[in-house]
Amino acid sequence: NEEPLPEGWEIRYTREGVRYFVDHNTRTTTFKDPRNGKS
């Protein structure tokens, strides 16, 4: 039961299956979860 991502964020996966987060607001990507700060 995960809380929803902030507005404008999306979860994607690399070809290796590593989860990362896309911030469409700033057009950046990060491996850090914007909901809780954990990677």
Rank of each mutant, 00 (worst) to 15 (best):
N1D: 14
N1L: 13
N1G: 13
E2H: 11
E2F: 11
E2Y: 12
E2Q: 11
E2T: 10
E2M: 11
E2S: 10
E3L: 11
E3A: 11
E3K: 11
P4G: 10
P4E: 11
P4R: 09
P4K: 09
P4D: 11
P4A: 11
P4Q: 10
L5S: 02
L5W: 04
L5D: 02
L5M: 11
L5T: 03
P6W: 04
P6V: 03
P6D: 04
P6L: 05
P6K: 06
P6Q: 04
P6T: 03
P6N: 03
P6S: 04
P6G: 05
E7M: 12
E7D: 14
E7N: 12
E7W: 10
G8H: 06
G8T: 02
G8I: 02
G8L: 04
G8S: 04
G8D: 03
G8A: 04
W9D: 00
W9Y: 05
W9N: 00
W9Q: 01
W9A: 00
E10S: 09
E10D: 07
E10G: 05
E10K: 04
E10A: 07
I11K: 06
I11P: 02
I11Y: 05
I11S: 07
I11Q: 09
R12K: 12
R12E: 06
R12H: 08
R12C: 12
R12Q: 09
Y13L: 07
Y13H: 09
Y13I: 07
T14K: 02
T14L: 04
T14H: 02
T14Y: 02
T14G: 05
T14C: 00
R15N: 13
R15E: 13
R15T: 13
R15Q: 13
R15K: 13
R15M: 12
E16W: 12
E16A: 14
E16G: 14
E16Q: 13
E16D: 13
E16R: 14
E16V: 08
E16I: 07
G17H: 07
G17A: 04
G17M: 06
G17Q: 05
G17N: 08
V18R: 14
V18E: 09
V18W: 10
V18Y: 11
V18G: 06
V18F: 11
R19S: 07
R19V: 12
R19I: 14
R19G: 05
R19D: 02
Y20I: 08
Y20Q: 03
Y20L: 06
Y20W: 04
Y20P: 00
Y20K: 01
Y20R: 01
Y20V: 07
F21P: 00
F21T: 01
F21N: 00
F21W: 06
F21R: 00
F21A: 00
V22N: 02
V22P: 00
V22Y: 15
V22Q: 05
V22H: 09
V22F: 15
V22K: 05
D23E: 05
D23N: 09
D23H: 09
H24P: 05
H24Y: 09
H24M: 09
H24W: 12
H24K: 09
H24A: 07
H24S: 08
H24V: 08
N25A: 08
N25K: 09
N25I: 10
N25Q: 08
N25F: 08
N25E: 07
N25P: 03
N25H: 08
N25M: 07
T26K: 06
T26V: 03
T26W: 03
T26H: 07
T26M: 06
T26I: 02
T26D: 04
T26S: 09
T26N: 10
T26R: 06
R27E: 14
R27K: 15
R27A: 14
R27H: 15
R27G: 15
R27V: 07
R27C: 15
T28W: 06
T28V: 09
T28G: 05
T28D: 05
T28Y: 07
T28P: 00
T28R: 11
T28N: 08
T28I: 09
T28A: 06
T29R: 11
T29D: 05
T29H: 12
T29S: 12
T29G: 06
T29Y: 15
T29E: 12
T29M: 14
T29A: 13
T30P: 01
T30K: 03
T30F: 04
T30E: 02
T30Y: 05
T30Q: 08
F31P: 05
F31G: 06
F31I: 07
F31T: 10
F31M: 10
K32A: 10
K32E: 15
K32Y: 11
K32N: 13
D33E: 02
D33G: 00
D33R: 02
D33Y: 02
D33P: 03
D33T: 01
P34E: 01
P34K: 01
P34R: 00
P34V: 01
P34M: 00
P34Y: 01
P34A: 01
R35N: 03
R35T: 05
R35D: 02
R35V: 03
R35P: 03
R35F: 04
R35I: 03
R35M: 03
R35S: 03
N36Q: 11
N36G: 14
N36P: 15
N36T: 14
N36D: 15
G37D: 15
G37P: 11
G37R: 06
G37S: 11
G37V: 10
K38G: 15
K38S: 15
K38W: 14
K38T: 15
K38H: 15
K38N: 15
K38Q: 15
S39T: 14
S39V: 15
S39E: 15
S39L: 14
S39M: 12
S39F: 15
